[in-house]
Design a protein around this nucleic acid. Structure first.
Length: 497
RNA sequence: GGGCCGUUAGCUCAGGAGGUAGAGCACCGGCCUUUUAAGCCGGGUGUCGCAGGUUCGAGUCCUGCACGGCUCACCA
């Protein structure tokens, strides 16, 4: 039998647990579906007062008074107080409670709903049943669970001890549900495309590599669904979207998790200006829905999602915050002087693409606190976007920044297969020169495009970051239930025969 | 990967300048039939992250390692 490492308290509970089993009481109980949840009982007190009701939940506090006790139980919807009296339960049952029931256990009760002298809605319990016995001790009730490592590794404890954590993830669900509702309403169809891809395309990032035994080939966890979704547009879908995970084999930080949730959407016959309007109304409606206001607080800023968002050309943003022009950055010798002046160190090859990226990342992005569309991105860093009609060095592409974070990326999709081939070719050249994030040639995708990709507007929204901003969280780990942590044996068990 | 900081009881934390490890909650025993961070009396339950080193003596000083946080790099 396997015996966990337990402290003295836990050992005693385990003995109790064995005693319960021996005396025919199942410490793991059975079904106990109640008509009302704890919140409902409280909200409908007027009509349920003096009525016999049932309630269930985990015990989070016990306040004993000798021959009576107050217990607080918690279900998903809320807490409710229970009043256990020796007179009501009888000696045997009350003593069983005193002896065998602890904080952390799940119980089900039946009793009369009333209000105490201090105004607390309470169930005067006539009978109770043990639903599940807890062996481990819950974190402390007042200070909660603070240790970030424990909170992330054992998120269930965080959810129990810190009600705000649970509420935050409920809010995350609501945000995603609302976005789905809006896209559905707008006529988009939700689809699923491969997570395992033979070529990791659609973004510039290092992929996770895995191996598929049956096919005897390397596969990649997707870094984006983009190229598959556009194949669907070739196939005749007009409005599709996908909300799911992307995987990027890169550093973890306060705003990066290696697996993160992305919304991608494609809208045939539209362009990036249509997408801009779609993003504006989607975000404003979503924020208003979950916050009861189009405003949020993030990193000490009040952010207002009321349309229209600020719109600024990429070149103007470069000029305004870095004091440089695209032409200067495209000229290698001028660019080097600028990098020096701006005190930017380049680790990557000093190509125009990398230099433009670097200057924009370091000097420009962080300035956009209120929702801001930066549009007409340079061609060098936009290998999948359609060229701007009046300037072949720019693309019909925008990124949306909020709170200094990149939240969305969108463009009129490049649908010229010849041009796409050349752009992929340039990416391959960059890769040969050591750019590990450069994109791969995807001939199969080119071929799809040769059958005709109609003019299409495409969009990607980083859902985790959006949730951070809407819920006011500084760290992406706070909005991901199980953020990526390094492996650690946190719960070693000693083996026994 | 670099820098800084952290790791002490189940949880939240304190441990001056090296001298037998502390508090609150939780838990155990006693009292208490409307409390709610219930209260009162008594009880400390510990591999001080791990491994070395210095020292008569290390939670404390030194080195290495592990994990975490922040940050830089990386990441559109």
């Amino acid at each position: 039998m396997e015996v966990p490492n337990l402290n003295e308290v836990e050992t005693k509970r385990l003995e109790l647990f064995n005693y319960l089993k021996a005396t025919g009481i199942d410490p793991y109980g059975k079904r106990f579906i109640t008509k009302y949840n704890n919140l409902y009982l409280k909200e409908h007190f007027e009509e349920l007062q003096n009525v016999e009701v049932e309630a269930k939940g985990r015990i989070i506090a016990i306040r004993g008074h000798g021959k009576a006790s107050f217990i607080t139980i918690r279900d998903f919807y809320g807490d409710i107080q229970l009043y256990f009296r020796l007179d009501n339960l009888g000696e045997e049952k009350y003593n069983f409670f005193k002896k065998a029931i602890d904080i952390g256990d799940f119980i089900g009760v039946k009793g009369i709903l009333f209000k105490t002298h201090t105004g607390e809605i309470t169930i005067e319990v006539k009978d109770f049943t043990l639903l599940t016995k807890a062996i481990k001790v819950l974190p402390e009730k007042y200070h909660g669970l603070k240790d970030p490592e424990l909170r992330y590794r054992r998120r269930y404890l965080d959810l129990i001890a810190n009600r705000s954590a649970l509420e935050l993830f409920v809010k995350r669900s609501k945000i995603i549900k609302k976005i789905r509702d809006i896209f559905d309403r707008e006529g988009f169809l939700e689809v699923e495309t491969p997570m395992l891809q033979p070529i990791a395309g659609g973004a510039s990032a290092r992929p996770f590599v895995t191996y598929y035994n049956a096919l005897d080939q390397e596969m990649y966890l997707r870094i984006a669904p983009e190229l598959y979704l556009k194949r669907l547009i070739v196939g005749g879908f007009e409005k599709v979207y996908e909300i799911n995970r992307n995987f990027r084999n890169e550093g973890i930080s306060i705003r990066h998790n290696p697996e993160f949730t992305m919304l991608e959407a494609y809208w045939a016959y539209a362009d990036y200006t249509d997408i801009m309007d779609l993003v504006e109304r989607t975000l404003c409606e979503t924020v208003t829905y979950v916050n009861n206001s189009p405003k949020t607080n993030f990193m000490g800023y009040e952010i207002d999602f009321t349309p229209p968002f600020r719109r600024i050309k990429f070149t103007h943003a470069l000029k305004e915050f870095a004091g440089v022009t695209l032409e200067e950055l495209r000229d290698l010798s001028t660019a080097k002087e600028i990098l020096n002046k701006l005190e930017i160190k380049m680790d990557k090859p000093e190509t125009p693409a990398n230099i433009i990226n670097e200057v924009f990342d370091k000097k420009v992005e962080k300035n956009f606190i209120q929702p801001t569309f930066v549009y007409e991105f340079p061609i060098e860093i936009s290998p999948l976007a359609k060229r701007t009609p009046y300037d072949p060095h720019l693309t019909d592409r925008f990124e949306l920044f909020i709170g200094g974070l990149e939240i969305a990326n969108a463009f009129s999709e490049l649908n010229d297969p010849q041009d796409q081939y050349e752009r992929f070719y340039e990416q391959m050249e960059a890769k040969k020169k050591g750019d590990v994030e450069a994109q791969e040639m995807d001939i199969d995708y080119i071929e799809a495009m040769e059958y005709g990709l109609p003019p299409t507007g495409g969009l990607g929204i980083g859902i985790d970051r959006l949730v951070m901003i809407i819920t006011g969280q500084d760290s992406i780990r706070e909005v991901i239930l199980f953020p990526q942590l390094k492996k650690k044996e946190v719960n070693e068990r000693k083996e026994e025969e």
